[in-house]
Design a protein around this nucleic acid. Structure first.
Lengths: 257, 257
DNA sequence: CCCTGTGAAGGTTTTCACAGCC
DNA sequence: GGCTGTGAAAACCTTCACAGGG
C-alpha cells in the first residue's frame, strides 16, 4: 500500500514541496485578479491576504521558484503570473476528457475556470446512448465506445471521472489503458491505478463530514468551557478577524500507487 | 493572516490530529461497504487497502480514538462504524442549506452521500426568482429572501455555497449573520469570515492545475532521464502495482480565520 | 503466531526572526 | 525604511519496528 507520499518519493524533482505546489494555483488566481485591475506590483503581505495564507509561507513558497521579488518593493504581478503559470505547466494546452455527464459532469463542462487556465475540454463522454450528440456547454456528448479513439487522437493525458461510484473503476481502467496518466476523481470510490498514474479525488461528503466534526466540537466546547452562563461580552479569543483562507497543509490527495 | 492551522490552535481539543480527522470519513466509507457485505471483522491491513492508506497510518489514526481493536484478530466492523460516526458527529442530524442551484448545486442536491451520513438538505436557495418553487431532487427551490428565516427556523449551522464567484462573499456574509458556522465553498474565491467560522473549499481548477504540474514533470523526466531510447523492458520502478489512494497529508482546507 | 497499539525515528511543513538589498 | 529571501526552530505528520495481548 501507500507507495509514497508526494508522487515520486520526493527524489530530486528539483524539489518544490508538494504543499507549495498545492498553493501555487491560489497565488495564481489572486495574481490574475490583480493583473486584471492593472496593479503593477504587490507585496508578500498583500498577496498573502488575497490568497488567504500568511506572508511567511508565501515568501517561502516563492523562494522555491527562485528570487522573483524586489526587496523593499514587492513582486511584479505580470512576471509572477508568468513564472507560476510556467511552473504549473499551464503555458501549454491540456486536453481533458470528462466522463459521466450527469449534473456534476455538466457543471464541470460549464465551468469557466478550465479554459482560462490552459485546459481544454476535448470531449464529453457518457454511457447513456440517448445522451449521444446532445450538446452540453456547446460540446456534443459522445458515447463511451469512442473513449479510446478520442484519447489517442487528441493526445489526452488528463481524465475527469464524474460517473456514479459503481462505474468509476471500470472507466478508470479504460482511461489508463488508453494512455491517460492523470485522473481527477469525483466518484466516491478508491481507484486502483498502476504505478505512474496520479489520482486526485474530490469528495463532497468527506468535506461535509470534516465540517461536522468541527461543528460538533464547537457545540461541545460551549457546554464544557462556560457551562451555562456565557459572558455576553466579547470574551472569545480573536486574532485576525479578517482574511484567512490559509489552506494549511492543503495537500488533498495525490496518490501515485 | 492565517489565524492558526487546525481550527482552535490545537489546544486541548482532546487532540485528534487534523490529518486523522480528514481520513476518518475514508475509513467510514470502507467500513460501511464491509458492513453491507456482513463482514464481521477486518484487519488493519485489509481495511487500509480498502481505504487506500497504509496500515501503520490507519493504526495510528485509530489509536487516537481509543483501543477499539483486538490483537491477533482485528477490528469489529459494526463497532468501528459506530465509534467513527460518533467521533465525526454523524450520529446527529445536520441540516444543510445549499445556495446557488445551477448545475453544481443540483448535482449536490442529488448527491446520495448526504442523506446516508447524517446530513439533511434543509433547503435549496437561489437568487433567480424564476427558479422559485421548481423542484430539484424533490425539494422546491426557494428564493434568497427566505435565507435568514430558513436558517433560523431549521437551526442550520452548515451552509454550502455553489454560486458564481461574484456572489459568494455576499452569500457567505448573510449565512454567517444568520447563524451558520461552517461553510463548504465551491466558488473560486477566498471567503472572509469572522473568527469561529470554519470554511472548507473545493476548487476544481486547482485540482486540475496540480495534476498538470505532475503531468508536466512526467513528460520532462522522460526527456531528461532516458533521452530518446526507452528500454521497452520493464525498467520503471514499481512498488505496489495496486491500491494506493493514501491521501497523504489530506488536509484540504480548514480555515478558521 | 498473528495482529494491534505505540514509542521513537525520520520527513515534511510551518513559523520565526533577521540579515541583506533596494 | 520597507520588504524580500532564508537559515534555524518548532510543529506536525508519517513510517518504522517491535513489545505485548489474544
Amino acid at each position: 500500500m501507500a507507495t509514497g507520499r508526494t508522487h515520486r518519493p520526493a527524489t530530486r524533482s528539483r524539489g518544490i514541496p508538494e504543499a507549495t505546489v498545492a498553493r501555487l494555483p491560489l497565488y495564481l488566481r489572486a495574481l490574475t485578479a490583480l493583473s486584471e485591475r492593472s496593479v503593477p506590483t504587490v507585496s508578500s503581505e498583500e498577496l498573502a491576504a488575497a490568497a488567504g495564507v500568511n506572508s511567511a509561507k508565501l515568501r517561502k513558497d516563492f523562494s522555491y521558484l527562485g528570487s522573483y521579488g524586489t526587496r523593499g518593493v514587492g513582486y511584479d504581478v505580470e512576471y509572477l503570473v508568468y513564472q507560476i503559470s510556467r511552473e504549473l505547466g499551464l503555458t501549454q494546452d491540456w486536453p481533458v476528457v470528462i466522463v459521466g455527464i450527469g449534473n456534476l459532469g455538466a457543471a464541470l463542462a460549464n465551468y469557466g475556470g478550465f479554459a482560462s487556465r490552459g485546459f481544454r475540454v476535448a470531449a464529453l463522454i457518457d454511457a447513456d446512448p440517448s445522451m449521444a450528440g446532445k450538446p452540453v456547454a456547446g460540446i456534443p456528448v459522445q458515447h463511451t465506445d469512442e473513449l479510446e479513439k478520442i484519447i489517442q487522437d487528441d493526445g489526452v493525458s488528463i481524465g475527469v471521472i464524474a460517473t456514479p461510484a459503481g462505474a468509476a473503476q471500470q472507466v478508470c481502467d479504460r482511461l489508463v489503458a488508453a494512455g491517460v496518466t492523470s485522473i481527477l476523481n469525483f466518484a466516491p470510490t478508491v481507484l486502483n491505478v498502476p504505478e505512474g498514474v496520479d489520482v486526485r479525488k474530490v469528495d463532497l461528503s468527506i468535506e461535509l463530514q470534516i465540517l461536522a466534526f468541527h461543528e460538533q466540537r464547537k457545540a461541545g466546547e460551549e457546554a464544557a468551557g462556560d457551562a451555562d452562563a456565557v459572558p455576553p461580552v466579547a470574551a472569545r479569543k480573536q486574532q485576525q478577524p479578517s482574511t484567512d483562507q490559509g489552506p494549511d497543509g492543503d495537500v488533498p490527495a495525490v496518490m501515485p500507487a
